[in-house]
Computed example of a mutant assay.
Amino acid sequence: MDYKEFAQVLKAERLKRGWTRIQLYMRINELSKKHEQLVSIDSLSNWENGKKLPRLEATLALAKVYKKPELINLRIQAIELIRKVAV
Rank of each mutant, 00 (worst) to 15 (best):
L44D: 03
F6Y: 15
K33A: 11
A63R: 07
E48D: 08
A61I: 07
L74D: 09
Q8P: 01
V9I: 15
Y3M: 05
A12G: 14
I41M: 12
L44T: 03
I41Q: 12
E30Y: 12
A58D: 00
R75T: 04
L81W: 13
Y3C: 04
W47M: 02
L24F: 13
P69Q: 09
Y66Q: 06
L71S: 13
S45P: 00
I72Q: 02
A58L: 01
A58H: 07
K68L: 14
E13D: 15
W47C: 04
L62I: 07
Q77Y: 11
Q77P: 03
P69N: 09
V9A: 13
I22P: 01
E70F: 15
D2H: 11
R14M: 09
I28N: 02
A63M: 11
Y66T: 08
R27F: 14
L10I: 15
Y3R: 14
N29C: 05
S32L: 04
E48A: 07
P69F: 14
L15R: 14
H35F: 05
L38C: 00
L62M: 12
K16L: 06
L24G: 10
K11N: 14
M26R: 13
E80M: 13
Y66C: 08
K64D: 02
N49G: 08
Q37T: 03
I28K: 01
F6L: 12
Q8A: 10
A61H: 07
K11V: 08
G50W: 01
S32P: 06
I72G: 07
L53V: 05
Q37C: 02
R21G: 12
L10C: 14
Q8W: 03
E5C: 04
L38V: 02
K52V: 06
P69L: 10
S43R: 07
S40I: 10
N49H: 11
I28H: 02
K67M: 01
L53A: 02
N73T: 11
T59L: 00
L15N: 14
A7T: 12
D2Y: 10
D42L: 09
R17W: 10
E36S: 07
I79T: 05
E80R: 15
K67S: 10
G18T: 05
L71C: 13
L38Y: 03
L56N: 06
L53M: 03
R75C: 06
R17T: 04
A58F: 02
L15M: 15
K51A: 05
I41S: 05
T59D: 00
R14N: 06
E57G: 01
A78I: 11
L44V: 11
